[in-house]
Design a protein around this nucleic acid. Sequence first.
DNA 1: CTGAAAGCGCTAACAA
DNA 2: TTGTTAGCGCTTTCAG
Lengths: 352, 352
Amino acid sequence: MRDGSKITINDVAKAAGVSKGTVDRVLHDRGEVSAKSREKILKVISELGYRPNFYASILASKKNFHISCIIPEFNNGEFWELTEHGIDQGREYAERFGISISAVMYDQYDLDSFQNACSSVLDSAPSGVVIAPMFRNETLKFVKELSERQIPYVYIDSKLEDDGYLAYYGMPMYQSGYLCADILTDGRNVRKVHIIRIARDKRGLSDPTITRRTGLIDYISEHYPDCVVENTFIDPKNIQARYEVLDQMFEADPDPMKYIVMCNSRVHFVADYLRDRGIRTCRVVGFDVLDRNLAALRDGYVQALIAQHSDKQAASAISAITDYLIMHESPARKDNYTQMDILNKYNCDYYI
Amino acid sequence: MRDGSKITINDVAKAAGVSKGTVDRVLHDRGEVSAKSREKILKVISELGYRPNFYASILASKKNFHISCIIPEFNNGEFWELTEHGIDQGREYAERFGISISAVMYDQYDLDSFQNACSSVLDSAPSGVVIAPMFRNETLKFVKELSERQIPYVYIDSKLEDDGYLAYYGMPMYQSGYLCADILTDGRNVRKVHIIRIARDKRGLSDPTITRRTGLIDYISEHYPDCVVENTFIDPKNIQARYEVLDQMFEADPDPMKYIVMCNSRVHFVADYLRDRGIRTCRVVGFDVLDRNLAALRDGYVQALIAQHSDKQAASAISAITDYLIMHESPARKDNYTQMDILNKYNCDYYI
DNA sequence: CTGAAAGCGCTAACAA
DNA sequence: TTGTTAGCGCTTTCAG
């Protein structure tokens, strides 16, 4: 009964006329087995439908697996905090199998910091790696090294064009922009859409939200060919400058009904402005369930949020590697596009 | 390293000056231990921070746990099919711990069938039970019996007012109706809402969607006090009768723009009608991701679907019992209201 | 009431 | 290239 099938490595050994030591050897591909023994054992295994009991396996094994997760560093309430929660969930799972998890953070605006993170991970000789890549070239170099060392790695958030990865968990960025535009406009007579963007001081950084913006713009030009799309850049660090820019935006066009969208997680910047100025005439859509975004949703300064359970992405990434390490099982599918959740004030309180 | 803490039952035994047999006895509360031994052992355990290794425990144990799941029977493509998938997911998890899972189905329109299901489950002396209750009184009787036998049980889909259950996983029904109304109307100038309902031949059956309808109606009267809510009853088994009723509904009011909603999973009945009649002027909202509902969503006969991942509910229920059985851990929270997912044609393809 | 001892199914030395 | 053996940490008889 136990484990569904009661056939053990001993049964296999007996049926194949060898010892369990030999069976174990073919089970783990560690050579030193004659071709005929090997063949026979494999045959018996599939005939009997033998499935190893990995509790016994873990118990007996002296191996110490470790998984490193490389993600951007963050402050409280920021996007990557949720990912860290997911790492904690994944840790809970992995630790049951005696696998330890560590998170290594880097400054997403600083290439050196990313390189340091990568090389320190490499030095620790991990059994597997989870990575949220922000620097294209450096990441490609890094995963190439991982591949050579036969270390499995999983992308989260966004992925690159190599194909050595074990799995990828992330949101379909283009589609999320398309969806966002649909929710923003939703059959209304929209003449102008305002995209609020973060003014990036450093150039040359990869920005995963570009694809999202493309989806957004495509939707508009397909469904509202006469609609104007206007970009407004705000400074994330300077409130005053931010308010000035937004004031200008509102003054430039007398219509108080504005359609506003942000393609990253920081729509709360817009909400704060609207709250302070007492503006309730706009339709605002943003992304991700930060506390400040949720508050804006509840208060009615943001009408909808598109969310992606990025915690689950990290957790899934870790269990994918765990399962691969423990039971040699690759995930059912390699590319896992997580669902896009539409949140409004009536369902956001039930979002975990 | 292994398992986080390397202190074993042997360490505890040594430190307490007893044998591991005795430690095991207090660990599992199976008596036959002197008060002082017990006390000492408990003290040592907390001092050392000993945490049992349940792989070893499962390996050595001869126990055979079994969980029974009681749910309504179904045809392909119906609501409960998704729940069965969830049971399969749960089984995958539970079997890792040597716990077997079985599903027992009953006819949700037949009390006898439900009673039979319950008593056959009782006869099989399960280690735990997952139940989707459709008959109030009978269920209360059943769970009382389970409580007396100390068998843990978990509600899914809906729950009753007893409080002996280990956990509950389901959608907040009232809120889902409220949300549904919001999506249906969404700031539009709505004067009449059509609720399409299934004509139930048998009376006296509990209907979990009543609460949902209440939420829906409450929203309307709060936000659209002048809006009329009209109920139309259709026969699930008779196409012709169905079409006649709907024809009448459309003929009764010349306005082709109708707001239509169904509170159960069978909005595809409405979609089929609209497709056949070539009506594209309505706004239709329904519940649950049946294949036929998804098709209607993609084709534009249904504008939105509210979904609830009922597979995850069943899977969570099973892992809750599993964790309880294996590591004596109760779930983090008892009542788990699952999130309400809003699906439209742009995000439904990413809904697993 | 308690200790000793025989496994659970598998891994990994170590011999052969 | 193989078989043998000593555990992994825990449960469960079975004597005492």
